[in-house]
Design a binder for these strands. Structure first.
Length: 703
DNA sequence: AATATCCGTATTTTT
DNA sequence: TACGGATATT
């Protein structure tokens, strides 16, 4: 869990804490923030620049509402991650009655939708015992539908399941017709329009029949419930105040929900910063910010521009990066310019490195040097565009025994073995879950597609799915010989899980012997994967039910293997490595942005369209504004071309086009050469000049 | 019917 | 390169 959410420190604004009579929620706020907090009711749009204390303002507003008598369970606080909700409510609790605060409805759109649908689903004809599919499950199911529709065989090539799932989710979340989505984002699939439509229809039908909801369904059904003339009025009357954080990263569907929920009471507070919109790929549109005043014509608009986080030289750079954006991408009515009263004149550093190795060495050196100056590792972070950009650095950190945690890399739940165990649990939880059966049966050696189809029929998964588990436990299914022993073990384990009603932790323990039998044949690193099962079991809160454990894990997955066990060593200091996306809302005293080369940032995949490029610029802005005191930007001059080439080709890089015009705002450090003093003894400008010669030559023979 | 082999294509960010 | 998917082999 991130320790450093937006301006966490209670006194990070450095205000004197006023008189003792002053209520806690009023303390340490500037006038603008106070306007946000004391806004009586009615729609409110807060334009909150990076580091301007929006978390504080929002938390204080909730605290004021509670302190002044609003029933906490009639407040809805929607945040981007569950982490953010937890953090914010903890702060609210510190300002008012923390037991009352626990009643506040807080969480992501998806998590809140889940809660509401479990409670009220039957009213709109939804079984409350639905299973939530995560993205990977949904993709698998699309794949199954694709196969059973006989697509992809012979004939023309057909989009792959993950592409199809991406198209589907875009259509739903953006609420844009398939035709347009294909034209705009997936032009190479346009010929398959009709087949895609068919697959989507079959996919939907299948989900409905088996009581499965994917992430998108959670939003769709919530919206349906709140818009229905039957259930809507009662549901809308449930909340007196709705507050939405990170409004710039909501999509069309989410905006609909906010509009519908807020229509009667009008007490909607939306907080966001269009300059930090970085989830366009997930169909979020910052236009929701601009549209807010149309949806709620009486809305009050308040801009927070005083930054409490960064020193001025860092803000100057961040402001300059934004100001360079083409004019049409900067709507006037949302304009903000960050300023600060924080003293400090240290300028950001720009370091041109010889290659990735040199970059890693430089970052390690800098991190350690800053620690000597008193900045603990935990107050420093290394940020990068994509997960694997930190590969080289991770090796170097390990070599030097510098502890670190990485966010935003491979997710725990996506690891195959974790999905295996989850599937085993899901079968017990819901014997009608075909996807789970599918995966579980696949674990048996000697069982392939054909045997699985036969078992599918014999277990009655289509006709009488509720009895499938007892049929399996009754045995005698004519399994192939290699599967017999493992199947026996599975039977015993499932039987115990079911009859003894084991909780999730015990159930995982009970299923482990089966995994011990089957993992070695499937995975080269079986022992490590088995060890993860212990972690998984330990992550289950005491007393939680199996099904609740499963959905919570789906909606709020741990970031990476081992995360649930807490940081590497509890009282150890460790460096944070994070993608820029995962760093949203966080801050550190020192930030090291690596790989800031054109092609990485902006990613060369975004070069095609204007919107994509604009989003990359905002991403750069987000990265820069995470830093409080120290900002180091590095980029390697040469890096491996790991595209189609197999040889050790290098590729000369140039500084990110977003930073190139701002070089004068940096202190530039000469090329950092990994091995030896060669570079260090040269005059400063020497090596970059040489690099420019190389770049010039490169330009001459490129294409 | 399950497993081994070959081929073509994608590409990043996450609830 | 790496991975999914389709074909060839045991």
């Amino acid at each position: 869990m991130f320790a450093h959410l937006d301006d966490v420190g209670a006194d990070s604004q450095g205000h004197p804490s006023g008189g003792d009579q002053e209520p806690a929620w009023r303390r340490g706020l500037n006038l603008r923030q106070l306007d946000v907090v004391t806004h009586p009711g009615g729609p409110l749009l807060v334009l909150a620049g990076a580091g301007t204390g929006k978390t504080r303002a929002l938390a204080s507003r909730v605290a004021r509402l509670v302190a002044e008598g609003t029933a906490p369970d009639r407040i809805l606080l929607l945040t981007f991650t569950r982490r953010a909700a937890t953090e914010m409510l903890a702060r609210v609790g510190a300002m008012t009655d923390h037991r009352a605060t626990a009643q506040v409805w807080g969480g992501t759109f998806h998590a809140v939708a889940n809660r509401l649908l479990r409670r009220h689903g039957p009213a709109i004809g939804l079984s409350p015992a639905f299973t939530v599919l995560d993205q990977a499950d949904a993709t698998d199911l699309v794949g199954l539908v694709r196969t059973s529709a006989g697509l992809g065989e012979g004939r023309r090539r057909f989009p792959r399941p993950d592409t199809m799932a991406a198209i589907y989710t875009r259509v739903v979340n953006a609420q844009v017709p398939l035709d347009d989505v294909l034209a705009e984002a997936f032009p190479w699939c346009r010929d398959h329009h009709d087949d895609l439509a068919g697959v989507f229809a079959a996919y939907t039908e299948r989900k409905r029949r088996h009581h499965l909801l994917d992430f998108d369904d959670l939003l769709l059904f919530w919206r349906a419930m709140v818009c229905s003339p039957d259930t809507g009025p009662a549901l809308r009357a449930t909340f007196d105040h709705i507050l939405v954080d990170e409004y710039q990263d909501t999509n069309a569907l989410q905006a609909d929900i906010v509009a519908a929920l807020g229509a009667p009471c009008g007490n909607v507070t939306a907080v966001g910063d269009d300059a930090q919109a970085i989830y366009g790929f997930r169909a979020a549109t910052a236009e929701n910010m601009a549209r807010f005043t149309t949806t709620f014509p009486t809305a009050t608009v308040i801009a927070l521009e005083q930054n409490y986080r960064s020193v001025q030289p860092i803000l100057d750079l961040a402001n300059a990066v934004l100001a360079d954006a083409p004019a049409e991408q900067r709507p006037d009515h949302l304009a903000k310019v960050l300023w600060t009263q924080r003293p400090g004149t240290v300028r950001p550093r720009l370091v041109t490195c010889h290659d990735e190795l040199a970059q890693s060495a430089y970052v390690c050196d800098t991190v350690l040097a800053l620690r000597e100056e008193g900045i603990d590792l935990r107050h420093q972070a290394v940020l990068f565009r994509t997960g694997h950009h930190s590969d080289a650095l991770e090796l170097e950190l390990a070599r030097r025994d510098i502890p670190f945690v990485k966010y935003g890399g491979l997710r725990f739940l996506e690891a195959a073995h974790i999905k295996d165990v989850m599937a085993l649990l899901r079968v017990v939880d819901n014997p009608a879950d075909q996807l789970a059966w599918h995966r579980a049966l696949d674990l048996l050696e000697g069982v392939g597609p054909a045997t699985r189809r036969r078992l599918h029929g014999e277990l009655g998964l289509d006709d009488e799915p509720a009895a499938a588990l007892s049929r399996f436990l009754a045995g005698d299914l004519g399994l192939p010989a290699p599967a017999r022993q493992a199947a026996g073990e599975l039977r015993a384990a499932w039987s115990d899980c079911s009859t003894l009603e084991l909780g999730p932790a015990d159930a995982i323990d009970r299923l482990t012997p089966f995994c011990v039998l089957t993992f070695p044949g499937r995975y080269a690193d079986a022992p490590a994967r088995l060890a993860d099962l212990v972690q998984l079991a330990r992550s289950a809160p005491a007393g939680i039910s199996r099904s609740r454990f499963l959905t919570e894990l789906t909606l709020d997955p741990p970031e990476r293997t081992g995360d649930r066990a807490g940081p590497p060593h509890l009282d150890d200091d460790y460096l944070v490595l994070s993608t820029i996306h995962s760093a949203k809302g966080c801050e550190w005293r020192a930030v090291h942005l690596i790989g800031a080369a054109d092609g990485n940032l902006p990613s060369d995949m975004a070069l095609g369209d204007r919107d994509g490029l604009a989003e990359e610029r905002r991403l750069t802005y987000v990265a820069l504004t995470r830093a409080r005191d120290h900002l180091t930007v590095t980029f390697p001059l040469r890096f491996h071309v790991h595209r189609h080439g197999r040889d050790d080709r290098h590729h000369l890089a140039q500084l990110s086009r977003f930073l190139q015009p701002q070089r004068h705002l940096f202190d530039e450090i000469a090329d950092h050469h990994e091995d030896g003093p060669t570079g260090a003894t040269l005059p400063r400008a020497e090596v970059p000049a040489a690099a420019q010669v190389d770049a010039l030559l490169q330009d001459l023979w490129r294409r």
